[in-house]
Amino acid sequence: MANIGIMSFAHMHAYSYAACLKQLPGCELTAVWDDNIKRGRTAAKQFETKFVANLDAFLDSSLDGVIITSENMKHRPMAERCAAAGKWILCEKPIAPSVADAQAMVQACKKAKVGLGTALPCRFSPPLMEACTQIQTGEFGEIVAASCTNHGQSPGGWFADDALSGGGATMDHTVHVADLLRWILKKEFVSVYCELGNQLHNKEFKTDDVGSLQLEMEGGVQVSHVASWSRAKSFPTWGDVTIEFIGTKGVLWVDAFNQKINVYNDAAMKAEWAYWGGNPDLGLVADFVRAVEERREPTVTGLDGLRATEVTAAAYQAAKTKKRVPIKRTR
């Protein structure tokens, strides 16, 4: 039985991961800690577990693994505490806003000999897994280009505050696609150009809310990506992850969450898409639980998280300098 704790419910994904822990056999949501005590207590109550206000006590406890779902800028200090306490870690994406922080986290976990996973659940999405399989069998020939999107509705709050998030929509919505392409194509990113805007929310944000990226991968694969919080409040769903792969033998289009029924509910006065597809979070959390039990690295590693952060950080640099920026791989 793996004892898993959750650190911080700042990120809404915490609620989904908690629900997964409740649902999965062989694990338990043993404790919750949060620097926002009220939020932590409420969540602990909701998921019928205990809230531990003292961080030392939380980390001294019988926990085997910890899921970190705090604000991006707090990932590193929290991960370092967990590593020092010998806990396996699953960290919300982006693993950290800066390359230096992400690197430090990878190093700390290596030194403490604990597993570090990055919460990039798209790798557990059935349509994306199928796309990966089909492309890796070579049915579409060599992939020479791809155009991607990761749109969302505005999460607001700390997400739109640079000091806590380290960046806006581009920080939030580039890493999924960057990781998917690395995973599926088995290639690394080499350069990025980017235009950023803070222009979809009347400048209420202290971050960008849209980014248009042009990336290059090893072997000259041409990739474009749109990262945004462009989905209107009245949009029928939260957003999307889409990729169009252009191969020498064909084209593969995947709209990962386009498994829905259209619902027209007069009480809501807006059309809604009710999703009926698989739950990628469940695959992610199940993998983490197994990694804890088997004392191995989670499938999507801290290094994968670092690689994705390298792409995002370079994109911000490119937007600032208005130049194409090389993406350096660090250790």
Binding site: S147, C194, S212
Partner: peptide, 14 residues
């Protein structure tokens, strides 16, 4: 296959 990122004078990104 061609992929463009465009910035307009108005600030709009395409």
């Amino acid at each position: 296959y061609s992929q463009v990122t465009l910035r307009m004078k108005s600030g709009l990104i395409a």
